[in-house]
């Protein structure tokens, strides 16, 4: 029972006519990094706001750390940390002042406050910027400051809404190292993202599309159990081949990757290589190879809209 930090069932939230979240069931285990993967507007932020008690659900039940939401939202606040999608600390305060403010809000004072802030400043590499206004810092620095603020009171459960969207790849890698450190220290983390490589780092993830959960599980399971085969074709005229393959009903999508075409076939096809060999634009000298699915393949397979987008392009 208590192994789950978040339990939600049949969770829905409407904004007028917009159904931002529909019938979401969610079970997040303790000590894990759980990901929400989905394109912009799919409801990631709304889901996180529902799970932090910032929004009231239109329907459904939520239990976070054993607290029933939205009733116990105020009690929950001491136990969770939330890093908003948009930077929400004060641009016109310095790093030191922002952290000092948050510390006082959580009831730290004197020596305990100073120690905790110094600790965070060194953990998140903010030593050079302590006297800098938050508004003048780089995306990566702001993101580390936001994470420091969200973890200042050592929450059991951390919500991170697209934490790396304004950050370069190197900083993204470092940031994930910090998340694994936090996870090792026992924190449970729920993180939303629209980057495949980030989603792949999560212990478990849910793929969201237009407010509906399309799939969930560990990245490995999702890739193994994906209802499709992935074949890479090396051929001379990839554009024409792509056009002719896309009209075949068994082909979910075909996307050009450098000199190869990555083709997703429905798993109703028993022998994908033989099936493709029979197609007309495949020349005998073309090489076909069955490859391991990527998370992107999973995403494309289970989100309806993206498949259409891929087919159209």
């Amino acid at each position: 029972m208590n192994d789950y930090v978040i339990k939600a069932s049949n969770l829905s939230r409407n904004f007028g006519d917009i159904k931002a979240i529909q019938g979401l069931d969610l079970n997040v285990e303790k000590g894990r990094i759980y990901g929400f993967l989905g394109p912009n507007g799919c409801g990631k932020t709304t889901a996180i706001r529902l799970l932090t008690g910032l929004l009231k659900p239109s329907a459904g039940e939520i239990q976070v750390l054993g607290f029933t939401l939205p009733r116990d939202a105020q009690k929950l606040r001491l136990h969770i940390g939330y890093m908003t999608q948009k930077f929400s600390l004060y641009d016109d305060l310095t790093v030191q002042e922002n952290l000092g403010f948050i510390a006082k809000i959580y009831g730290l004072s004197g020596r305990a406050k100073r120690q905790r802030i110094d600790e965070l400043i060194s953990t998140y590499g903010l030593e050079q910027t302590t006297q800098q206004l938050a508004g003048t810092m780089s995306g990566g620095q702001r993101q580390r400051l936001a994470l420091a603020a969200a973890t200042l009171h050592k929450p059991e459960l951390l919500f991170l809404d697209e934490p790396t969207s304004a950050v370069d790849p190197e900083n993204r890698r470092d940031f994930w190292e910090k998340l694994f450190d936090l996870s090792d220290q026992g924190a449970s983390i729920l993180v939303s993202t629209h980057y495949m490589d980030e989603a792949e780092r999560c212990h478990k993830l849910a793929i969201l599309e237009t407010g509906i959960k399309r799939a969930d599980g560990s990245p490995e399971t999702l890739m193994e159990e994906m209802g499709a085969h992935v074949v890479e074709v090396a051929s001379s005229d990839l554009r024409q081949l792509k056009q002719s393959l896309l009209v075949i009903p068994e082909v979910i999508t075909a996307a050009q990757l450098g000199a190869r075409l990555r083709v997703l076939l429905k798993n109703t096809v028993a022998d994908p290589l033989a099936f493709l060999r029979q197609q007309k634009n495949i020349a005998p000298e073309d090489t076909l190879s069955l490859v391991r699915p990527s998370l992107e393949d999973v995403f494309v397979t289970c989100t309806g809209k993206s498949r259409q987008l891929s087919k159209a392009s």
Binding site: Q74, R77, I80, Y82, F87, S88, D91, I105, G107
Partner: peptide
């Protein structure tokens, strides 16, 4: 400025 979303998740 979005500060309120942070503030209201605090106690």
């Amino acid at each position: 400025r979005g500060n309120l979303e942070m503030l209201i998740t605090t106690p």
